[in-house]
Design a protein around this nucleic acid. Structure first.
Lengths: 146, 146
DNA sequence: ATGAAAATGCGAATTATTCTCAATTATATT
DNA sequence: AATATAATTGAGAATAATTCGCATTTTCAT
């Protein structure tokens, strides 16, 4: 059975400090992808003494043990989210930036097969698709510019 | 018909400077994902006067018009590559960091279908998979540490 | 060729991230 | 519950990455 993130931290020999618990809980509770600064600001509301360096250190530790992943697509600096066991696909509109979550069991299965064929043990996957959302397609076809 | 990157730059109203041509040609010629600094160093070999700021500015322009994409996965800062019409899948080993390129016509087709179902017009896709490469799986099973 | 607007190079300014080190804290052991 | 010890933290300095400001140069339409 999959143990909680807390167990994972301890099982890897890291200490379960409450700064780490706090940061983790913020990441888990957030639907958006936070960057270090945003995370720091949120964390500070619950622990005004927490340091930005600790946020960075925690993120790098979490990343090392696979609790989170960094997303750097189209952004200027790193954004983080917890790794969910359900891999998801992000469609980002190149015009308005809106993100749509997609999912497909079939595709996930095929990707897993592809990895097995190559003898790669998959831990996580993220599919990042860029293009035009329905609204922006509409806009583009309306403004009939050359 | 798809016009070349040069055409794209001009068609978007940007000037085709030779710094931009140089940077683009390096990106196109490179198989790896370069970061701004590496790109700068390479560019300097052909144009010793080029400035790092120009590299950054070009990258951001290219990104805006969709010529390149930024990859920030697992790295500390942004890496870039030209958007190819052939989407590819990256498998990154979480232990050694080695990248394996994968490809699957079937998966690409399914992803396209998925987008069509949702009325999303795809421009590019990138599948980022993380896990253990064969070598690191071997290592892990050998060192039978609790 | 000429002029206007855009892009460049340079260094300074800003932001993002990492490091150092003394003080604190989590955990295993008693 | 108290203690030892090794990891972690906070604070700010140090470093790295990115952007900005502006004088000069270049592109491109005329």
């Amino acid at each position: 059975m999959k143990s909680s993130a807390h167990e994972t931290i301890k099982s890897k020999g890291y200490k379960l400090t409450h700064q780490r618990q706090l940061i983790l809980s913020i990441l888990e509770g957030s639907q958006t992808h936070l960057d270090a600064e945003a995370l720091f600001l949120l964390a500070k509301r619950r622990d005004p003494k927490i340091s930005l360096a600790t946020v960075y250190r925690s993120l790098s530790t979490f990343k090392k043990i696979g609790l989170i992943q960094e997303q750097g697509f189209g952004e200027d600096h790193g954004h983080f989210e917890t790794v969910s066991n359900k891999p998801h696909f992000h469609f980002t509109c190149s015009q308005c930036g809106q993100v749509t979550e997609l999912r497909s069991k079939k595709i996930i299965r095929l990707i897993k097969e592809l990895c097995q064929e190559e003898d790669l043990k998959m831990e996580s996957m993220d599919l990042l698709i860029q293009g035009l959302c329905p609204v922006c397609q509409e806009k583009k076809s309306t403004s009939t510019t050359s």
